[in-house]
Design a protein around this nucleic acid. Structure first.
Lengths: 213, 213
DNA sequence: CCTTTCGCAGTATGTTCATATCGCAATGGT
DNA sequence: ACCATTGCGATATGAACATACTGCGAAAGG
């Protein structure tokens, strides 16, 4: 058998170059030529690994979701539900340069997803996943904080609490996204956004995590 | 002099068609051909009114900002600062179909602004303007609510209050943006977003406005 | 050493696009 | 009635692009 290369690694290299192109030229502005140049390889190689431009862009989107989820998994590994919630909500807020790049690329995908069902599906699933996770974490935190019983009254109370948790989770996630957006646009910087988020956590009786790099 | 037409009106017609194209095909996908088709006019006409594709897209962005600001001005005309604040913060959240279109287009511009300084300037100014307005309104509301004096202690207290108002305004605006984003992506619908926003207003001791169409 | 098979660079092809240009039509002043 | 000026449809031009295709070099087993 002939020459063996790590297929997945090569694809990741190319996707990385793709993100660079998206960041500095927008999702339009992506072409095989541009990506090949950014990656420092030939156009032929890009074509060899991705059958079409669409597939390349789609793969870039799923890898972005995967990267975000692994990052969350790693950062939230050690820590209680409160810390995990902070990690989840503050995740979108970029505080380093590569994170800013990632966030900007993410917004490009988000905007495109309106017109592109394939992207909408990927992104919609990711958002739904984060939402469900946040609700679960918040419910745990809230029920753990109260000394709630498990009798009938407590159960009714629990249903109410679940609904409140849903609203609260939505508000927290939306706040994180909104702040992230402002960082990407340059209206505020990362630390400011994280400070605002931390303040909001505190105001809700939650413990914000530290500012991670 | 020859044939007289309303220049501005023609430009607006074309920009409207541009928005339609952006909405259903993304900012890439915009071409003179596509816009001409959407507007039901010839390519030549588009060229006659816009020297380049870039200029067309840029004009589309400024008109979007102008439209949002006029809408705010009109909706907030009758009402105190609290009502104006609600109008400002809930403005980005789309609750009708044309508003959803507008919001989607706005996100396309937002994403592109990362790579396009011309757009970044327009959008940055709009965001800054909204931010300043929100801070002003919130400061007014907060100082009006307390029965604060104007002595030295009151003044120091006022500086603190200003800083708190800044943080609070940021949080409210970011929340509005984050909720709007989720509506655009389809994770929640307009009423849900407005309800979440209203709940947040209430939680902060502010009066949310009604759900406007 | 030789052959087979994959990795991938380079080039060809047809399409789409932005933009420049031409020319006709409409119009209002003279 | 005529003409200068503007609106704008239509077409030409050349660049950029996605994609298909060709072929060579490099390995890995026989």
């Amino acid at each position: 058998m002939p020459r063996v290369v790590d297929h997945a690694a090569r694809r990741s290299e190319i996707v990385l170059a793709l993100w660079g192109v998206i960041h500095e030229r927008g999702l339009d502005g992506v072409s095989f030529r541009a990506v090949a140049e950014a990656a420092g390889v030939s156009i032929g190689r890009i074509q060899h690994y991705f059958a079409s431009k669409e597939e390349l862009i789609r793969e870039g989107c799923t890898q972005m979701v995967v990267a975000a989820q692994s990052r969350y998994a790693e950062l939230s590994r050690s820590g209680g539900p409160e810390h995990q919630l902070w990690t989840l909500v503050s995740g979108p807020v970029p505080s380093t340069r590569p994170q800013r790049l990632g966030a900007a690329v993410w917004y490009a995908y988000l905007a495109k997803s309106v017109a592109e069902p394939a992207l909408r599906e990927i992104i919609g699933a990711a958002i739904e996943d984060a939402g469900a996770r946040a609700i679960r974490l918040l419910t745990t935190v809230r029920s753990g904080a109260d000394g709630e019983g498990t009798d009938a009254v407590g159960a009714r109370h629990g249903a109410e609490a679940r609904s409140r948790s849903e609203h609260e989770a939505l508000a927290l996630l939306a706040l994180g996204d909104g702040l992230a957006q402002r960082v990407v646009v340059g209206a505020i910087d990362g630390p400011e956004a994280l400070a605002a988020l931390a303040e909001e956590f505190t105001r809700r009786g939650l413990t914000p995590g530290g500012i991670l790099d």
